[in-house]
Each structure stands twice: as C-alpha cells, then as structure tokens.
Design a protein around this nucleic acid. Structure first.
Lengths: 334, 334
DNA sequence: CTGAAAGCGCTTACAG
DNA sequence: CTGAAAGCGCTTACAG
C-alpha cells in the first residue's frame, strides 16, 4: 500500500507542503537545493499528486472531454486515436463520452459540467441542430472551451471548428470522376441531414452542374447492413451508373462490392470514390480511391486552439479552421 | 455564468449543505418534503455537483480507466464502444489511455494512480510480460481493481480477466477448414508474442496434429501495410495452400485479397477464416467467416467484476471468466 | 525563497 | 431526520 500525500513528502523534507507543491509545479520558485531534496524524497516515497485534489484547488482538471457518436466507425476511431495522442502530449487526459442521438444529450452535457473538464472536443460528425444549440449554450453558460472537430456548427451557432473543406472535397471527388469520362455519377449519402454530408452533397452538385450532368443522389441509412439493400436497389434501378461516390468509405465499399457482384469491372466500367481514407480503403478489392483527411493535423490544431482558449489568452470564440485535404487515387479509379 | 454550489442550494432551501448532499446521494435519509424542496431548488439553480470535490471527499472518482494499444484497430474500437456503453450505464465515466509499447507504460500507470480511478479495464490484447507485471504491481500496491479484457495475464500474474477461449476458437477455426477437406492450412499470426496470439496458435496446432496435417505458420508484422508483403511472399512460396486462418480479421482479409489476385477462387479453391467479427468482415468480398466475440457480454461482465471489486465485497483477486464465442460462416468458407 | 492559512466543494461520522 | 464540524489533498495569495 503506497499512498503518500504531499504532507508526507513535506514532513520528510522538513519543509512546508506549500514548498513541496511549488517544487513540483513551479520549480523555478524553489531554491535548487531544496527542490532537489524534495524531488528525491517524492520519488523515494512514490508520491503521486492526487489529481482530484489538485483539480479542486486549482480549478483545472487537466482533462479534456472527447464526444463521439459511434466509436465503432473507423473514421471516428482513427480520429480519436490521433486526437488523444495529441492531447496526451499536452498533458491532458481524455474522458470519452458517447452521444447516442439527441435523447440523452442533455444528461451528457450535465455530466460534462460536473466533470469540470478544461475543454471539449466535439468530434461527432453526426451533429444535429439540437446538439449544436445545446453545445453553444454550454459554452456560453459555463464558459468552457469547445472545439468542433471534423464537423462544423449549424446555422448561426458560431462555434469554433477544425475541419477540411468538405464542399470542395465533394466537388473534387466528383470532378475526378468526370475527368475520367464518367457521365452518370451517383452520390450515396446519408438519410440524416448532417452538416458534413450536406457539404459533400453541395460540392458534388456544383461539379455536376458545372459539367451539365444529371444529379443522382441516393440517401442511405448509414447503417452497414441496411445500406447494402438501399444501394443494391438503387443500382438495380440505375443500370447506367458509371461513377459512384459515397460520403463514407464504408458506403463506397458496400457499393463497390455490389457492383462487382453485378458483373461490373472496377475501374473499367465504374469508378468508385470514398471519403476519409480509413483503413477500410486498404482492405477492399481493389483498394479505394478517396479523400484523405489529415487526422493528426486536425487533432493537433484542435488541441492547440483548446489550450489557447483554456489559458484564457485569446477568446476569439468564433472561427473556422480549414485544413488541406488531398485526393488519393487507388484502384477504384482510372 | 452558472456555477452554483451545494451551499447556494442549501441557502435557498434553508437547510444545511449536509442535507442537500443527502437529498442528492441518499434520498431515503431525508424527509420527503425537505427532499423535494431541495431537488426543486437544485434544478432551478442548475446545480451540478462538482465531481472533483465529490471524488476528493468520498475517495471515489466514478471514473474507470480503459487502457488500449491501438484504437484505430476495429476490434479495439468496437470493444471500447461496447465497454464504454456498459460503463456509462453503471454511472462511470471513461478515461481513455493509450499504451504505446513498453516504453511509456510506467508513466501511464503513474498517471492512473494520480487520477484515482475506481478501476481499470486493460483491454490491450498486445499485452507484454513487462506490462503484465507492472499492472500486477499496480494492483497490489494501490489495491486498485483491474480486469484484463479480451486478453489474459502472462505467467503467474494472477490477474482477473474476461475473455473467450481463444485456444478453443483457434482449434475450431482450424477444424472448420479441415472438415471442408482442406489439407494445407496456414495460420497467419503476429511476430510479436502476445498471449492471445499464442493461444490461437495452440488451438490451431492441436487441430493440425489431431488430423495429422502439416504445421504451416507465418509470422507477420501486424502492420496493415507490411502484412501484405509478408503474406504475399508466403503464399508465393506455398502454392498449395488451400486454407487460411488469420489471427485478426484484417490479416485474413489481406490474405484473401492476395489470393484472389493470384487467381484463386474463394471459397472453391481456398477457404479463409478470421478472428473477432469486426466490421471488416462485412466489407470484404466475399464476406469473411470468422470467430464471433461477444463484445457486449465481455464488457458487461468486466464492469460487473470491477464494480464488485470496487465495492470491496468479494476480493477474489484471481480468476478467469471465459465467455462463449461462436463460429460465423460467411462467404469465405464452403 | 519559504511558511501559515484559507479555501476549493463536497462527504460523512458524530450528536442530537 | 437534520446540523455543526472535520476532513479529503491539494494550490495560492499574502507575509515575511
């Protein structure tokens, strides 16, 4: 059993607990001699500051909440991994919170208030209007720094966000297929109206209109199993499709597989394009062409903004940071 | 700005803060009349108990640490999702911690001590001997409940674990292929010696020996990119392979794709079998036959053990809980 | 550079 | 059923 407190260290070092605290947190304020002695004793005693006590006294928890919708999705998991690595390097611990739709969002936010986290990374691309408003309220009422990650706020909720230009990405995805000579390009998107999906659609539509092609959008459930039948039905009714874009890699791959089963050659007969560059893209056959999202940069930037806000230096409570994405061509495009 | 404390509530309700605390935590100890009044005022004031203060006073953080190696792996992400849902239903918050090999494991554990989490879920199937020992030490020195999830301890570190019988699963996977008439069954496993991989290998070997077949094991890096060349090389050198088992779905799928590119028909020429039943299995072509791991049951059971240990009731500090797995046959087996 | 003291916001025996 | 009081383990002005 090993639970020494700051007093145990102070006692052994023959100093006050205040000095021990300083030796640990602001070493420059302590005479080197004293400091070294304290540090040695702390180590010897296996002293580990109690984060709760420290948090209570300093009103800083050194915890950041990460809010996700569905961690089982590769894009989400990969992003959380990237962000948590950055957060750890900043000395923050991650509290992982799951939003399941709009029902329990109130509880969730209450929970966060209780936790007194130093900041919130909201990386739920399935952000709804209700959530957007509540998050804004939370920020305003409790002055807690919040950054939306890989998504952006809805309407006039001017929340900070770090993301890529999904409209442009959608445009480029579509244009890539157009330039391959595709004439009948379908966009498989989500039934639910999420900000990011909508942006991708806009970009797709812009390219379609620019080149005078036909708009072809199919709204799938987003659920892996159900998607399949939605997509299958659509492709059966539209035999002339020669280009497919999915708003998620998983959707694109579902379509890819169906196309192959229908006897299409990829990419000879049909080009397929995804979004996010998840691991899925490497496990399908052929490997999926997609939009690459700079996960680590996004995570790093979001944490940077959060720390700046947390330090209370600059409070530019609005603004959107757009990072560069790139197009990755693999086997599903020519 | 909305930061009322327990005193604000007490003041308005004309009671002591102790009574407010009781009304919130042990309502049966407060007269209904008083209780309702307090609850109403608390709600009106938007009072949210400060988790750090509560934790400090009660020495219970209601936080559980989840330790993972690589959240970007589907099996890990899906498991974390399942477990965090269970933990949330128990009222615990999740602190997500990443182990990156053996280097920073000491820091990580120190961090956990500081955090004063109520329990630890160690769901790193890439568990090493060093980690196993340190975790055991942590448990013994700080009396903190720890459960290994989907993995098990090494050597004589008698840590609690909740997992499936991976030896049996390996045996069954191999036997499934044998019963399809396969004679040259290779096991693609990881170079690094993890407890779970080793169990799968044992099971594979048991079936191979039982039926007098040839042992064929190939040790891959575990890294998605590198795996591919390892596997490709192996398959080129062993043209007679008619059965493939991978210790992870992703490895099996990598092999599956290579086989198809080599002109093999799946499952006519070669059967392929995976482990874990991740989402990957639904996105490959054909869909992968695999061992299904009961994620939610594992999570639920692990949390149950943790809460029991945390309550200090039973302290059966050793023991292995084995849950039932199942075999899922899809398109990669006959 | 160091110490005494107050305070962070709760919980929990102890009395009554 | 309720209150006064001590205490959880730190931090941080304030003095010196």
């Amino acid at each position: 059993m090993n639970k020494s407190t700051i007093y145990d260290v102070a006692l052994r070092a023959k100093v006050s607990n205040a000095t021990v605290s300083r030796a640990l947190n602001t070493p420059e304020k302590v005479k080197p001699e004293t400091r070294n002695k304290i540090l040695a004793i702390a180590k010897e005693l296996g002293y580990k500051p109690n984060a709760m006590a420290r948090g209570l006294a300093s009103s800083k928890s050194t915890q950041v909440a990460i809010i996700v919708s569905d961690l089982a999705r590769a894009s989400v998991a990969e992003m959380v991994k990237g962000i948590s690595e950055v957060a750890e390097s900043y000395g923050y611990n991650i509290v992982l919170l799951n939003v399941k739709g709009d029902e329990q969002i109130d509880e969730l936010l209450m929970d966060i208030v209780s936790l007194h986290v130093d900041g919130i990374l909201y990386l739920n691309d399935e952000l709804t209007e209700k959530q957007s408003h509540l998050v804004k309220e939370l920020k305003d009422n409790y002055l807690i720094p919040i950054v939306l990650v890989n998504t952006e706020s809805i309407g006039d909720d001017d929340l900070l966000s770090v993301t890529i230009d999904y409209e442009k990405a959608g445009y480029e995805a579509c244009k890539t297929l157009i330039q391959e000579g595709r004439k009948h390009i379908v966009l498989f998107t989500t039934q639910k109206r999420y900000p990011v999906s909508i942006l991708k659609e806009k970009g797709y539509l812009r390219a379609i209109k620019e080149y005078g092609l036909e708009e072809l959008m199919c709204f799938t459930s987003g659920n892996l199993d159900i998607n399949k039948s939605d997509i299958e039905k659509y492709l059966n009714e539209h035999q002339d499709i020669d280009g497919v874009i999915g708003v998620r890699d998983s959707i694109s791959i579902a379509a890819l597989n169906i196309l192959v089963y229908k006897g299409k050659k990829i990419p000879e007969d049909v080009s397929v394009f995804g979004f996010q560059n998840t691991r899925y893209t490497l496990l399908c056959r052929p490997q999926l062409s997609t939009i690459n999202v700079p996960i680590h940069e996004i995570g790093a930037r979001a944490m940077k903004i959060l720390t700046t806000e947390m330090s209370g230096e600059v409070q530019d409570a609005k603004g959107k940071v757009i990072l560069e994405h790139s197009i990755i061509k693999r086997g599903t495009t020519k």
